[in-house]
């Protein structure tokens, strides 16, 4: 099997609002994929459906051949996820939290993920004392426990200071080089331009572009994104 993730005809409506419309794509192992789109494009809804947190109105998601919505526990064993607002036990330290999650996941790489995310020096402080950025680091570290095959990150790098963001990108790239697939959603085009191998663009609930990031020069992705967004708006008006 060459594809790790298979998204087939994914749609989701909220009442009259079509948040995601017939999105399909496949992701192979060991690829860094950026999912970009304007605010309200449907990125978070798509990610939530991939994470198994929201049921699609139609379509399905397979990770490693496992249906995310029909076999949620098995699917979660294959993936690590960081939602937009990651829930954590505030009264634990990051070290305690990670040790706890590691026990539940049967993982043994707590020290490694602490180092990768740059949390070692603050690992013994309670999470409730953390800044937003440190909470995201803790959530990412938890997602990387047990080296899952797929990492789903929803706006996970937004709001990080430049050194932390650089460290993250390095850590994620290392994982990708080891065979993990990373799907990172963001509305910050520069982030994707800097790290992604491939870019998925969403606008108004639809997948409007699926392209390799390799051949793009600096700034080209943003131009392309704005161009596709304008096309999508024009289609919507028609």
């Amino acid at each position: 099997m060459s594809e790790l993730v298979s998204v087939q005809g994914l749609s989701r409506s909220f009442g009259p609002v079509k948040a995601v419309q017939d999105v399909s794509f496949a992701l192979p192992p060991g690829q860094f994929v950026g999912l970009i789109g304007h605010n309200g494009a449907g990125k978070s809804t798509t990610l939530k459906m991939l994470m198994g947190m929201l049921r699609p109105s139609s379509g399905r998601v397979l990770v490693g051949g496992v249906d995310v919505h029909a076999q949620p526990k098995e699917a979660r064993a294959l993936m690590g996820v960081v939602p937009e607002e990651p829930p954590l036990y505030e009264e634990l330290s990051a070290l305690e939290f990670l040790q706890f999650v590691a026990e539940l996941r049967g993982a043994s790489n707590v020290e490694e993920v602490l180092e990768l995310t740059g949390l070692e020096s603050d690992a013994r402080r309670l999470i409730r004392e953390y800044s937003q950025g440190m909470r995201r680091k803790t959530a990412l570290a938890a997602a990387m426990l047990g080296k899952p095959k797929l990492l789903l990150l929803d706006e996970a790098i937004n709001g990080l200071d430049p050194p932390s963001a650089a460290l993250w990108k390095k850590a994620l790239r290392q994982r990708v080089d080891e065979g993990t697939t990373v799907l990172l959603s963001t509305h910050v085009v520069e982030t994707v331009e800097a790290v992604a191998d491939r870019v998925l663009m969403m606008a108004h609930g639809k997948l409007v572009a699926d392209l390799s990031a390799g051949g793009l020069s600096k700034g080209q992705l943003e131009e392309l994104f704005l161009e596709r967004l304008a096309e999508s708006q024009a289609e919507g008006r028609e």
């Binding site: 909220f14 009442g15 009259p16 939530k48 198994g52 947190m53 929201l54 049921r55 949620p72 526990k73």
Partner: peptide
């Protein structure tokens, strides 16, 4: 239990959509 997350998200989404 896992399905509950989807159902509760759905409930939240239905409230949010209106």
């Amino acid at each position: 239990w896992y399905e509950a997350t989807m159902v509760l998200q759905d409930i939240a989404a239905r409230y949010a959509s209106v």
